[in-house]
Amino acid sequence: MKTLLVTGGAGFIGANFVHYWLAQYPQDKVIVIDALTYAGNMANLATVNSNPNFTFVQGDICNTALVEQLLRAHSVDTLVHFAAESHVDRSITGPDAFIETNILGTYSLLKAAKIVWLDNKDTGVSNHRFHHVSTDEVYGTLSATDPAFTEETAYAPNSPYSASKAASDHLVRAYHHTYGLNVTTSNCSNNYGPYHFPEKLIPLVITHILHNEALPIYGDGQQIRDWLYVTDHAYGIDLVLNKGRVGENYNIGGNNEWANIDIVKTICTLMDQQFASNSALAAQFPKAAAAQKGDSASLITYVKDRPGHDRRYAIDATKTNNELGYQPKESFETGITKTVAWYLNNEAWWRAVMDGSYKDWLQKQYDAPAS
């Protein structure tokens, strides 16, 4: 039986991990710490709030004393670190928050873990694990013919976001090699699925289609990403925690390389099919092009590319497959179908998230009408 402290557990990936873990390991205890900034949402955890093995604490991971208190009070033996500022566009216009949360926040967690788990030999926790969740963006960019990123690929971050994540990765590694902290790190590809904040590509496209709004595509739309269904990511972390070697990095990918423009066109087709097969959707979302017998793809609009936009990411998860037996359970086709259905069935969730401040930010990013 484990007791987990999950940072950023009210965010997209963290919340999905919490749901996954409590379903897979109902005897374990899960404590979530989340500052509930713009992307943190208690509605993401509504279905587990009544679980007696779940505890939520609103707090900042930069508050080392609070983290130390939680580790001691709950006898935590496993820390899973999701909390991060993660949107590249935001890191370009406001990098300070990324330095503070992603670098200083990770350092704060490492300090607290070292104090509680290592510094006092009488009360320390020898069988502990600090798992750090990172990104494939730390590896930089690939050309169309380059081999996919492996765990041996040299770091080459190209945005303030990816640079801040690279720094946090190095801090985690250093705390293992210098102090003996039991750490693992996973570098994942682009996640998608339920509870995804609507500023990201896939939920943005879905919600814009429902509002008959422009679908902004950076540059030529040929940027390629490997897409990972969020529950497959949670499954991969599960394997790392239970089978992974201490001190190692593991790539977790979806084996799904898609160009952004093809992702958008696929969603447009799925949405049109959903409206054609379910007449109730036209009444629920009367502004949608499909509700008016139009073509969702007609909303595609090309906008100026963002600075430092990486061309291609691709994950080689051979090490994780061979050592841990990891294979994603969802293809992109099955995962995106589930995702579209979730957004159609959870209108109240995403409408509550898409408040005025988000709309104002979106309009500035794409220089396009946001309403």
Score class of each variant (00 low, 15 high):
V88Y: 15
T7M: 12
D89M: 15
K200E: 03
Y250P: 01
W227Y: 10
H309I: 05
M42W: 10
H74R: 01
F17E: 02
D367H: 06
A290C: 11
A144C: 15
R245T: 13
E199I: 15
L70S: 02
M354G: 07
F149Q: 01
V88C: 04
C62L: 15
S162T: 15
S189P: 00
K364L: 11
D316S: 05
S159F: 06
T337R: 12
V125S: 02
D310R: 07
G40T: 05
D272G: 05
P203Q: 08
G294C: 14
Y229T: 02
G11R: 00
T37W: 08
N191W: 08
A368R: 04
Y155R: 15
H74C: 04
H208G: 02
L79A: 05
Q69W: 10
N187I: 00
Q274C: 07
P369G: 05
S108P: 09
D310C: 11
Y343H: 05
G308Y: 04
A259H: 02
N41R: 08
D136E: 14
N242A: 01
Y218N: 03
P328E: 10
N16D: 08
L228G: 05
H128I: 04
N187K: 06
G59P: 12
I336H: 00
D295G: 12
Y326E: 03
L118R: 07
L210T: 13
V18S: 06
S108D: 11
A288N: 04
Y358R: 11
D34M: 11
N53T: 07
L201A: 11
C268A: 04
W350A: 10
G193M: 00
N255F: 13
R225W: 04
L4I: 14
I336D: 00
P147C: 09
L5C: 05
A35N: 07
A348Q: 13
Y326F: 15
Q292A: 13
D238I: 09
G244K: 00
Q27G: 07
L228F: 13
H81F: 11
G94D: 12
E213F: 01
F98R: 01
Q222N: 06
V133N: 04
M42T: 13
A163T: 14
D146K: 09
D28L: 11
D136M: 05
L362S: 00
T320Y: 00
R72F: 14
G11W: 06
H208V: 03
H19G: 04
S168R: 06
T178Y: 14
L71C: 05
D262H: 07
G335E: 09
M1Q: 07
G140Y: 00
Y20T: 10
N321V: 03
L239F: 05
Q292C: 13
Y343T: 02
Q363T: 04
T55V: 09
D355C: 12
A282Y: 09
L344S: 10
T64R: 14
A352K: 13
G335Y: 01
I263P: 01
A234G: 06
H309Y: 12
I202R: 00
A234T: 03
I267E: 00
G325M: 08
A10L: 03
A148K: 08
T150R: 01
N191C: 10
K121Q: 11
